[in-house]
Nucleic acid binder design. Structure first.
Lengths: 329, 329
DNA sequence: ATGAAAGCGCTAACAT
DNA sequence: ATGTTAGCGCTTTCAT
């Protein structure tokens, strides 16, 4: 493998000058610099990160431990946001798909530790409480939090998301919403219920009995929606809802199917709204699903910034979402 | 940071013995080993990968460049398969999300080169032709291929997938299939068309005119399905299909919606089958979608094995899929 | 503006 | 079974 001293010989200069050129030290004669750079390009030399890390005692590595993050297409944006910031800052991001509490988590942590990562971002696929292993490295929590906040934390503002969506729905004149929420075990569900109730209360509408737990388990097993048990009955009750709010876009699929079964047209007989903006799914449903997009990309960016700054204050950042209106509402 | 010589001092032995313990060299007295291991555990020492890489001139790093792979939930299995094999073999997998031809591809490649990666796996989100930058590192292509095969390549056996699915459909007595294929620009589409036609021909059925291009672009923009233009017309023709085969599960969503609109019940009036087994989507549709699961996890494993073995023969491995039967068929 | 020397933490090679 | 020495490729430090 080519080394800097090899380059130095070819350029008839010293090892140190080559090092200066590579590190963009301004104290190099323009002519010398040009000569060295030409040779570097010719031989396709890449400095050894291993040697650099060892000598400078800085790895420039930020770890990203993704707890099943990539199993949901939207949460990949957490990764994209983080990676973009890492590159903008000249850092290396080491990415691992792990499962919490499993062997993969320990393997990833020890690998990062072996590479002397400067910080680790712990990301989860949905907003949830976690307990991360306390490593030797500073941590940032992304889309998750600990009971006692030990680390800087970046979260979606679920309360606000639901508040905004409910406002938007009521603005359009709907008065009888049915909120098929995710499991109460999920913190996001509870926050969204709060947000929705607050928005409705501000208009004198009481949502009591109109927010139902329509999923058994945390998002891990979305197949366990209770929509079939709840929805037909609700639609045939004395006061059927004029709008159905789903805890997530996947639930909306099953809601669309059930409504079709009941002979009801979405967007005409009854409106549907949801959370996630799962692309391209939300646009493929007929009519297109109005849904709240979560700020995953921005969250990823925010988390990486905190990791790079070496933030250690255990403060929580909450980012707002965006309502994507389509014809189901 | 703790070092091996630090451990050596604490254990009243030499640097080299500590190194031996860590590298599981059998030539160490059991007692000494125990003493050293105890101290290592106590101080939470992790050997520096940088120093190890530098001295041993082996990085143990395999790169994985994922071209938008994580944007589709099923293709994450490519990553899981590869990572599992890497860990089983004591290798580090460095994972990057890139976009082909963009800055991110070059950044990832130069990072891998700087870390002296031993091989690089190039993976794409769908089966397609690519042209990878020829790096200094040996490559493996995963879910993609080059015009002239320069690298070991791992692909799904799309021809066989469609052959098997069509066989399964005809076994159940369906005789009038309509195959809403993906774009002809996609190699998988052409292979699947071949496979489907071969299976039908074996039963004396001619699929001419029954395989339609129902998507404009490669998978990048699935919103551009032409199902709305094709399907209502086909269903109201003189010989309406008794089974519809979709190029992918996402297309099936739109097919379900359109059929519901036409007042037709999937699984009763008309059957639907598809490709991908996109979970949990395929199980959420009502009735559950029968679909062909692609062998992504096994493909990921196969690619990593080739990368680790240092395979350089430009041979193509084609892996079979699996039909997941649900009530739509 | 350039260079020489030292040394980061580890393992290979060679003692003992 | 254990220890000593050298050196991987770079950056830091200190000259010049």
């Amino acid at each position: 493998m080519t080394t800097q001293s090899h380059i130095a010989k070819l350029a008839k200069t010293s090892l140190k000058t080559v090092s200066r050129v590579i590190n963009k030290d301004p104290l190099v004669n323009a002519e010398t610099r040009a000569r060295v750079e030409k040779i570097i390009a010719e031989v396709g030399y890449q400095p050894s990160q291993a040697a650099r890390m060892m000598r400078s005692q800085t790895s420039n590595i930020i770890g990203f431990m993704a707890d099943q993050v990539a199993t949901t297409s939207s949460s990949i944006d957490l990764i994209r946001g983080a990676q973009d910031v890492a590159w903008e800052s000249g850092k290396h991001m080491m990415l691992f798909n792990i499962e919490q509490g499993k062997e993969s988590e320990r393997l990833a942590a020890s690998q990062l530790s072996g590479f002397r990562a400067e910080a680790v971002i712990h990301a989860t696929v949905y907003h949830q409480e976690v307990r991360v292993l306390t490593d030797d490295m500073p941590g940032v929590l992304l889309n998750c939090f600990e009971a006692e906040t030990r680390f800087p934390t970046v979260l979606p503002d679920d309360r606000q998301l639901a508040f905004d969506l409910m406002n938007c729905i009521l603005d359009k004149g709907y008065r009888n919403p049915l909120f098929l929420n995710l499991s109460d075990q999920i913190i996001a569900s509870r926050l969204r219920a709060e947000g929705a109730m607050a928005a409705a209360a501000a208009r004198g509408i009481d949502l009591k009995g109109r927010i139902l737990e329509a999923a058994h388990a945390p998002n891990g097993e979305p197949a366990s929606y209770r929509t079939e048990a709840i929805l037909p009955q609700a639609m045939q009750s004395a006061t059927p809802p004029d709008v159905i709010i789903c805890g997530q876009d996947l639930m909306a699929i099953s809601v669309y199917s059930i409504l079709a079964d009941l002979g009801l047209k979405v967007g005409k007989d009854v409106a549907v709204a949801s959370f996630d903006n799962l692309m391209p799914l939300a646009g493929l449903l007929l009519p297109g699903l109005t849904t709240v997009e979560l700020p995953y990309y921005e969250m990823g960016r925010a988390a990486m910034k905190l990791a790079i700054e070496g933030a250690s204050a255990p403060e929580t950042t909450r980012l707002p979402g965006r309502i994507v209106e389509r014809h189901s509402l």
